[in-house]
Design a protein around this nucleic acid. Structure first.
Ligand SMILES: [Zn+2]
Ligand SMILES: [Zn+2]
Ligand SMILES: [Zn+2]
Ligand SMILES: [Zn+2]
Lengths: 136, 136
DNA sequence: TTGACGAATGTTATATTATACGTTTCATTC
DNA sequence: GAATGAAACGTATAATATAACATTCGTCAA
């Protein structure tokens, strides 16, 4: 599809899914997206997964592999090499980017002849808020 | 389990699963483990998952979150902070450890007050062998 | 204008991954 | 030997994801 690209239904689904992800403020599964989305936007699993695929390609969402869940991107740019710190107590996620990290992985790859396409970096632990709560 | 059938010690299942993982030489799913294991060692999914859990705790196996698959550990020590380079062409995996990486993640965590418990670091791309094959 | 074509979308059914739950087993203790 | 309880077992089912097919809709040639 090139000319006259009408606003496709799937783009609408992507909007709805993104809206749902943003409202959630934490990682949610594809099936949670389906059930949390507007009642007038019922969608079958493949539709939700396709919308997610688009959002991820566009850098508007990420999949957290260690949770099998999805989250809205909280960055403006840098859609590659992002890292995530996941709180196992409250489920919150901090998205961040560390040049040192990207450099270290790039260097290792180059030195080993590994052609690096994508990286998954996910930390699990306890966020500052939950740490403080524990100490009380 | 019928009467007369001897109970299989869970440690024995762990041995069988580890043997299967080592034979595979690449990441395999829990269900592949079940079907690839010795015919005399039929096991139900929960049994396989429990064996895997034990092996992972013992540092003898790892779960690759981005593949939902498991692999035998190819290191003698260092069971934390390991990173994996996964070839999307041939499925081979290189397990490695980068002090720089661990340090960078540790520093970030400390500076943000995040209590780091575990890290998932998985690279996707093409291994040297497959890169060479592509160039031909 | 119209119908053939193909890409994008939608739907149904099913595959794959993982765990809740109730039962069985067996070492320990009396 | 019976009572006890922790560990491990398998059945059934939940949760995650995709294959395969049907439908829609823009494009373009006739
Ligand atoms: Zn992002
Ligand atoms: Zn928290
Ligand atoms: Zn290892
Ligand atoms: Zn390869």
């Amino acid at each position: 599809m090139r000319k006259g690209m009408r606003r496709r239904a799937s783009a609408e689904y992507a909007d709805i899914v993104l809206e749902t992800l943003r409202k959630a403020k934490r990682p949610i599964s594809a099936y949670e997206i389906i059930s949390m989305s507007r009642a007038d936007a019922a969608m079958a699993p493949p539709t939700a997964y396709r919308a997610l695929e688009r959002l991820i390609e566009m850098g508007l969402a990420h999949k957290l592999e260690s949770l099998n869940a999805f989250v809205a991107c909280s960055h403006s740019a840098h859609h590659n090499d992002m890292a995530f710190a996941i709180c196992d107590s409250c489920g919150s996620v901090a998205e961040f980017m560390l040049p040192t990290l990207a450099k270290a992985l790039g260097n290792w790859s180059r030195s080993k002849g590994f052609k690096l396409n994508a990286s998954t970096i996910e930390l699990h632990g306890e966020c500052p808020t939950c740490c403080k709560a524990d100490q009380r």
